[in-house]
């Protein structure tokens, strides 16, 4: 059980509020940013906005990166009301921005909500998730001789992209949804170089865009074959590429999004899937 909450450079009022809300079951660790060693057992990260913290956005970005695509909530506390939009924090990677002026009940509920443990996939979700896991590993092994291991899955409400480059593909036909893969530049560069059998320094931005699109295309293509004759069978469209971090994309039908975290050596990447089975359960293979 992960019961560690890290409060980074937080002032006593914020610490007090947190202690009040969190009770005894959870360890609150107060740290300064430069002393953070690892986030491994961390269940939540708390930061505080302040005039003397020009680097806060940068810190959020670094922390989000260090989370390796895991679902660790980063909560920013604002001590002053109406200091502008919360959007920059969210874009940088914060999960939630709370003001000390917000109703205490709201603060407590939102913190509690984020502290509730993640659920495991439902049986019907496992059916498709397993296939995507298997094929993601297989595709990267085949084209880039890269050994990839599946780390964990969690579910989110929105399609959030925190990474440098993402390949996105719409799933249509019988089952409908979206498939996305998100990398940071270094891993993307390594994979594309291995695919092309060339040195990493020969891989430019254009090739990375192109290659990431091709990877998501191959994962989608091989996975749909597994679903022939099942309600999860889909067709793929041409991929899009999204550059940059901090995109939150809306999506349809209130379907939860499965976020699969993978590891390749010491680097991580994420595959996101939102898949709504064909209501008629027919296969779409023509």
């Amino acid at each position: 059980m992960l019961n560690r909450i890290i409060a980074i450079d937080c002032s006593p009022p914020v610490i007090n509020v947190l202690n009040d809300f969190l009770g005894d079951t959870i360890t609150l660790e107060s740290l300064s940013f430069k002393n953070i060693r690892e986030l491994k057992d961390c269940r939540m990260i708390i930061l505080q906005e302040g005039d003397e913290k020009p680097d806060l956005l940068k810190q959020i970005r670094k922390l989000r990166y260090a989370c390796h695509f895991r679902n660790i909530p980063i909560i920013v506390f604002r001590t002053m009301e109406n200091k502008g939009s919360m959007e920059p924090f969210i874009t940088a990677g914060a999960t939630e921005v709370i003001s000390l002026q917000d109703p205490p009940a709201a603060i407590r509920q939102i913190l509690s909500g984020h502290l509730i443990p993640n659920r495991q996939p439902l049986k019907e979700e496992t059916e498709y998730i397993d296939s995507f896991v298997k094929n993601t590993c297989a595709v990267l092994k085949t084209v880039a001789s890269l050994d990839v291991s599946f780390e964990e899955v969690y579910f989110d409400n929105d399609f959030k992209i925190f990474g440098d480059v993402s390949g996105l593909i719409a799933l249509t036909g019988g089952a409908e949804g979206i498939l996305g893969i998100t990398f940071y530049w270094p891993l993307a560069q390594t994979i594309i170089a291995r695919m092309m059998g060339t040195d990493e320094d020969k891989i430019n931005a254009e090739l990375i865009h192109d290659g990431v699109a091709e990877i998501v295309n191959m994962i989608g293509g091989t996975t749909k074959k597994d679903f022939v004759g099942q309600p999860y069978h889909f067709e793929i469209s041409l991929p899009s590429v999204i550059v940059g971090s901090g995109h939150q994309l809306g999506h349809s039908d209130k379907m939860p999004i499965a976020v699969l975290v993978f590891r390749a050596d010491s680097q991580y990447f994420a595959v996101q899937i939102c898949l709504k089975p064909d209501p008629n359960g027919k296969t779409n293979g023509k």
């Binding site: 695919m195 092309m196 254009e206 090739l207 192109d210």
Partner: peptide, 13 residues
């Protein structure tokens, strides 16, 4: 192929 990466892979082979 619309993918330059893929064209290059095949070309290399």
């Amino acid at each position: 192929d619309d993918s330059k990466v893929m064209r290059n892979i095949i070309q290399n082979a």
